[in-house]
Design a binder for these strands. Structure first.
Lengths: 141, 141
DNA sequence: ACAATTACCTACCAATCCAGTAGGAAAAAA
DNA sequence: TTTTTTCCTACTGGATTGGTAGGTAATTGT
């Protein structure tokens, strides 16, 4: 039950791009240094974000990455789904998965409830929220 | 971001024990068969529950396992914590972990909020709930 | 034109976790 | 004393995690 570094770092890379956007693309090296993530590892994560069209890459000198949309339009859910593969907390709720015992499983309903709760949480938080929001103590989904 | 089979099966073993308690200990073989879990694997999971004092084991003929307390007193949270090791969704929130970047991490507060939400969810559901509760659609933590 | 800078690509690695399985020893009751 | 049960140690193949290494392709500033 853990979000891996890949997903966590992806969020930080996205936040960093959002905070440092000025029209020009931001080189990965700068982002990685600010976030204290090895640039090689950051590179492999940024590649996922780029292939998923969450960021736009520009090669060559004075190239780098930039967000493709407004920070407020990115949800934490979509970033984590892309990098982690899925946000379902149990295998039985995976896309296309069907448990043969689902008819008499006493735990399935609880997992479904949790699944919905997580989806609502993750899809309710945006990159902009991560930057702006100071106090999360009263945040309710 | 997955609860492993160990945790999921542990819940089902506990529910099965709760549903079939009649004063006598229930042999693991029966539980495993009903739950369609290989008895060898079920054995290794039950050993964890036994060492954690969530169930009482009785050896020898006519032995087996029984719950040590009332089903309503077991929370899903304690069972998963025992079997999964922890329920914290990110490594930075682990017991004793301290991230050196915590002062300027834009994601920490969100993780803390999620952590609290998960704890409240898991500690709010009991084995009895798993057996009794039909409709979870309106369940709120 | 060319050197510098950037993203892109393939391949590799050690360590850990996952989901079990195998084979017996110890305890207790019938 | 046989049978039934839990308990214990060890093993395993495969996947995932958290990276690293080294080179290729594109683009631009000089």
């Amino acid at each position: 039950m853990k979000i891996s570094t890949k997903g966590r770092y992806a969020l930080r890379l996205m936040v960093d791009l959002a905070e440092h956007q000025n029209g020009d693309p931001v080189p990965l090296k700068e982002v990685a240094e600010r976030q204290e993530i090895s640039s090689k590892y950051a590179e492999s994560i940024m590649a996922i974000l780029s292939k998923g069209d969450l960021v736009i890459a520009e090669r060559g000198k004075s190239g780098g990455y930039r967000l493709s949309r407004d920070p407020s339009s990115y949800t934490v859910g979509e970033i984590l789904t892309l990098t982690e593969g899925s946000l379902h907390p149990v295998a039985c709720l995976e896309e296309g998965a069907r448990c043969p015992r689902e008819g008499n499983c006493r735990t399935l309903a609880m997992w479904q409830r949790l699944d919905r709760m997580l989806a609502e949480f993750f899809n309710g938080v945006t990159i902009e929220d991560l930057i702006e929001k100071e106090d999360w103590s009263d945040y309710v989904i």
